[in-house]
Design a protein around this nucleic acid. Structure first.
Lengths: 148, 148
DNA sequence: ATAATATATTGACACTTGTAAACATATTAA
DNA sequence: TTAATATGTTTACAAGTGTCAATATATTAT
């Protein structure tokens, strides 16, 4: 299973968050927690769990009658993949603006901020004055494109 | 149609990028451009366009026999919504790390970088030493959570 | 031993998405 | 005018997703 091919649906993300946070957990535990946030029936959550096991996102260990679920992929790794995947499908010209928005809206620790600034300062010297648009195929006749 | 409810599938993003970049375009133009990047049949692209019109993502203006497609939502707006949506479903603790990754991997202009640094410096004084995890419901008995 | 409970397994159904062929129609080139 | 071309409309189908109910089975409390 090529990790980067794995697809997590929105509902499945919710389940993954619980499992990642707890390390591992039984279905009952997961159901209890999720039901404090979502209007999902027990059945629904069980289905999600089953599908995630099928997809290879979760593994189970039998413990007597019940299963203990554990994530097969580290949270950080998965997030990086998902974020990169999202960003890769955007126009390059828009990414700067977007990062500014996200930085503004996200709760960041002092350390986060300092590291981010460090990264940015390192990029500054070689940064272009303007990022090129990569929405249209470069070889095409429509490339009068300047901005959008 | 509540803009924030609109859902764009991956294939639809590709179409939107073309339309946003060109401002507006006929189906033939869109098909030509997309086929330089994707192995999609004409039919497939026509279906996508039709569905996007249905969803309210695109509007059409009849021009003789053909339609001219235009986006109903500005690119920036849509990106902000999508990005916020993505980030909102993540654990707060992970966002800093993720932003660092993205900042590193994204092509950024000098202006982007300077603005980002400015935003960050403004946040620094009031930033916490550590961001709290928001994966588990705060009222639950499992909240021995410290990190993950 | 019985009834209640906790789990897990099966089967379903509607909606979305990727993918496209077939068909209809309007326009234009031969 | 006929054939070719461009463009739009209909129909289809498999896979994935959100949502569950029904059922089976193992465990425990009475």
């Amino acid at each position: 299973m090529d990790v980067s091919d794995i697809n997590i649906s929105p509902a499945e993300w919710e389940v993954m968050r619980i499992v990642w946070t707890l390390g591992s957990a039984g279905s009952t535990e997961i159901i209890h927690i999720l039901q404090q946030q979502k209007q999902w029936s027990e059945s629904t959550i069980k289905t999600l769990l089953r599908r995630q096991v099928q997809k290879g996102l979760l593994t189970t260990t039998r413990q007597g009658r019940r299963f203990i679920y554990t994530a097969t992929i580290a949270e950080k790794k998965m997030l990086e993949l998902a974020a990169a995947n999202f960003f890769n499908n955007l126009c390059d010209m828009q990414k700067g603006h977007l990062l500014i928005e996200l930085a503004q809206q996200s709760p960041l620790s002092k350390t986060d901020i300092q590291q981010l600034i460090a990264v940015l300062q390192q990029k500054l010297p070689n940064a272009p004055d303007k990022v090129a648009c990569n929405c249209l195929p470069q070889q095409c006749q429509y490339c009068a494109q300047e901005e959008h």
